[in-house]
Design a protein around this nucleic acid. Sequence first.
DNA 1: GTCAATCTTGACGATGATGTCAAGAATGAT
DNA 2: ATCATTCTTGACATCATCGTCAAGATTGAC
Lengths: 191, 191
Amino acid sequence: MAGVRQFNEDEVIATALDVFWRKGLRDATMQDLAAATGVQRGSLYNAYGDKEAIFLRAFDQYTGQFLEAAGYALDHADAATALRNFFDMIIVNMTDGSPARGCLTTRTALDAAISSTEVRQRVQDVLGRLEQLIGKTLSAAHGRRRGADANRLARVIVTFTRGLAVMERAGYSRKQLRESAATFVDAVAGV
Amino acid sequence: MAGVRQFNEDEVIATALDVFWRKGLRDATMQDLAAATGVQRGSLYNAYGDKEAIFLRAFDQYTGQFLEAAGYALDHADAATALRNFFDMIIVNMTDGSPARGCLTTRTALDAAISSTEVRQRVQDVLGRLEQLIGKTLSAAHGRRRGADANRLARVIVTFTRGLAVMERAGYSRKQLRESAATFVDAVAGV
DNA sequence: GTCAATCTTGACGATGATGTCAAGAATGAT
DNA sequence: ATCATTCTTGACATCATCGTCAAGATTGAC
């Protein structure tokens, strides 16, 4: 069994994403990845180099899915509806699984195991892109809220989503998160 | 040099707090604590049992300081002023030091190294108390905003503070955090 | 069919952390 | 002054993880 790669890379990365999501970059070990993927540790090292390289691939896959879902949820003419959809989506996203997996981006941002700048950069990228996505939705919806205004508000909204992720980790239930998000949207979106 | 404790417990805990704040519960090792406090590892084990016990003491010290400062900052008749003070305080709190230490509570909430329920419980306690503190401020300031309304908003505000802590970790500057907080207060407090 | 390339496998060494312990030392009580 | 108590110290055993590597195996190209 050798000579050519014995595993499907996409599957391995998808499985690795699941492991990282459940355990976090720091706590997931190469052994965890090997066990979950069925690929030996040595093969993983041979194929990817190290854990962080695997993480980066998995994280890219994750952000792709996430931003796509966010864009879809936000795609409504009415800003309030868009935001409600969006919050529903991310709350389900972070409270899914048992135990809940939480938000991978937030967890990664807080993970001190970040020696390389690369990981940090990716986190900033997602947050920045999310901010832009939301900013566009806001300026498109409310003609009166344009430019700097929408951008500032977009950042506030992104910040709030990070807060929800922390609250989830602190033990708040999906229902509680939803209530907070609803209150937030009502207050901020000025609906 | 023995027979009686050779170190000042308060000083040791204060120093330990500094270490935990900079490195996090997970990443701070007993060796780090020993080096920072000047107390040998063995003595620390003898005196406290294990790392988590030391952390709990340090964290209690931290939350005491933090909630006191929060209460002081929030002690204003005008809700908007109270909130602005409060956000100023926590933003300085989390961006202080070089590199910035971030928010210990948030970091701890995300730290997966939490096997014991105790740590998690303390985190929930701080957040809960903070929520109450803010709730009181809100109901006291705005007569029209009472009961459930103030409580819901208080939780939204606590959530937002957690978001700021994450954004700080993601690399946002003190200035950026302040801008977001200001936008948030303007929008939410309905000032 | 042969061979070079490359993947797989299991073992190895290094490292860093945890928690324990026995021996030594100094204090406070009697 | 003596002694039990208790702290300190350094060493020890254990464990988990990382990253490397040589040997074996298999494939695809020629």
